[in-house]
Design a protein around this nucleic acid. Structure first.
Length: 438
DNA sequence: TTTTGAGTTGTTCGA
DNA sequence: GTCGAACAACTCAAA
């Protein structure tokens, strides 16, 4: 309800507005929302619906072909204008383009707004008008002061007509799993705008003061954990930025330096959307073309050991258990498990991306694709190939008291590692060298 | 067009 | 035990 430009536009027309949500996962193929995302969406929709109803309005829920549903509703209710906040995934951009021309051909006004990014993914270009492919210059060029970066105030009134419309319930969408593997999720998450805002304001009051340092330690709650809220549009990055500015304006320089790193992370999110927009194939194939020839290994036994957290490397296994139990994994550990899959097991980053896609509540195509390609060495600003994480060293550095490991592996007995890291590292370096020579 | 400086998150080796 | 260099060569982005 905060910083929702499409809704704001509709309301400012001072005519009755209909609020519509359409569930059409097949239109996002091959990346339709995974199981953990659907769990979040279910609760997110319930929360949103409740808020809407408190304002005396109705949320109409439908499933099926988006274009058809919108067209029908427009006819039925004699709609003159349609507005929405844009999404930037390649499949959705294509779909929405068709919907726009369909509606316009019927004489209906269409408005699209940006409600999920600080700037449009195409907005920032190098001086030679090419898309940025390296983070640091992108970050340096990012507009810091602009009225466009200010959020829109929260919506408190929605003009409606009194007629009740046909709608499904949230439950009708069957978003929750039938096998109840999600029980632990409820101990870790409260989806919905209200909870997201509370969570972030808490973070601003405490953890941000040491963000740069503490965000690297998975046993501490040093990170903001707002990623799922951002993904589902429950939190707006412009609101985040504005609140961050308010909170940091009076900070001492040492604290400000720590807090600045948080905004870096927010700009990384912008950067990844910029990459996916300009290189839409990168959700499925490497940005760095020479990696087409890389000899990734197929090994179902290793892959399922990784998925199940049974690799014998404690920090890797703890991470995979955290992911499975909570639908989330600490960023430091995401890097460790991704390096392990792609370098130690030589399994393609794409397999990892798919598993994360299904299990993360914050699964986001732009972030997920870029993150995995970074780890695999084939993306924008990729980690140099020789940068192979050593699970033991990472564990000692970032979880020295084994608090994180104990939390997720509880009383598990030590297991035999499925590979020898030293040897696996040499093999990875060799595979990279071979690819280059081809 | 050419040149220049630099590039998220690391590890290992040898002095 | 500590510390700096090497790991390689390439591409990006701006001057």
């Amino acid at each position: 309800m905060h910083d929702h430009p499409a809704l704001k536009w509709a309301i400012d027309r001072r005519e009755p507005a209909l609020l519509l949500y359409i569930w059409a996962p097949e239109e996002e193929d091959p990346w339709r929302p995974g199981a953990a995302s659907r769990w979040w969406l279910h609760h997110s929709l319930r929360h949103f619906k409740e808020k809407i109803e408190k304002l005396g309005a109705q949320l109409i829920i439908k499933k099926g072909n988006s274009a058809q549903i919108i067209e029908e509703l427009c006819k039925q209710a004699q709609i003159k204008a349609v507005a929405w906040n844009k999404l930037y995934e390649p499949s959705i951009l294509k779909r929405d383009e068709k919907i726009v021309s369909l509606l316009r051909s019927r004489g209906i006004e269409v408005k699209q707004f940006n409600g999920s990014l600080l700037i449009e993914p195409w907005q920032l270009q190098t001086k030679s008008n090419s898309p940025y492919k390296v983070f640091t210059p992108y970050f340096k060029a990012f507009p810091s002061e602009s009225p466009d970066l200010l959020p829109i105030r929260e919506i408190r009134k929605i003009p409606t007509d009194s007629s009740a419309r046909n709608t499904l319930t949230v439950e009708d969408l069957n978003l929750l799993p039938t096998i109840r593997w999600d029980s632990e999720f409820y101990n870790h998450w409260k989806p919905g705008e209200t909870h997201g805002q509370k969570l972030f304001l808490n973070f601003l009051n405490s953890n941000i003061l040491e963000y740069k340092k503490s965000r690297d330690y998975p046993a501490q709650s040093g990170t903001s954990k707002i990623s799922p809220y951002l993904h589902f549009g429950e939190l707006s990055p412009k609101w985040i930025l504005a609140e961050w500015r308010r909170a940091t304006s009076k900070m001492k320089p040492t604290e400000k330096d720590q807090a600045n790193w948080f905004i870096r992370e927010l700009i990384w999110r912008e950067f990844s959307h910029n990459i996916l927009f300009h290189f839409p194939h990168t959700s499925d194939s490497p940005l760095d073309e020479k990696f087409q020839k890389f000899a990734w290994k197929k090994n179902d036994k290793f892959l399922s050991a990784w998925k199940n957290g049974e690799t014998g490397f404690e920090i890797v296994d703890a991470g995979m258990k955290e992911l499975w139990a909570t639908g989330w994994m600490h960023n430091r550990v995401r890097m460790i498990v991704a390096s392990f899959l792609t370098k130690d097991l030589l399994i393609s980053w794409h397999e990892g991306a798919q598993w994360f896609w299904d299990t993360l509540v914050d699964a986001n195509l732009a972030n997920n694709s870029m993150g995995w390609q970074w780890a695999g060495g084939c993306g924008a600003d990729a980690a140099p190939y020789f940068r192979v994480f050593n699970p033991s060293i990472q564990s000692e550095k970032f979880d020295p008291e084994k608090k994180y490991i104990r939390q997720w592996l509880k009383g598990r007995k030590p297991q035999i590692p499925i590979v020898d890291h030293k040897n696996a590292r040499l093999k990875a370096l060799e595979a990279y060298k071979q690819m280059r020579e081809k």
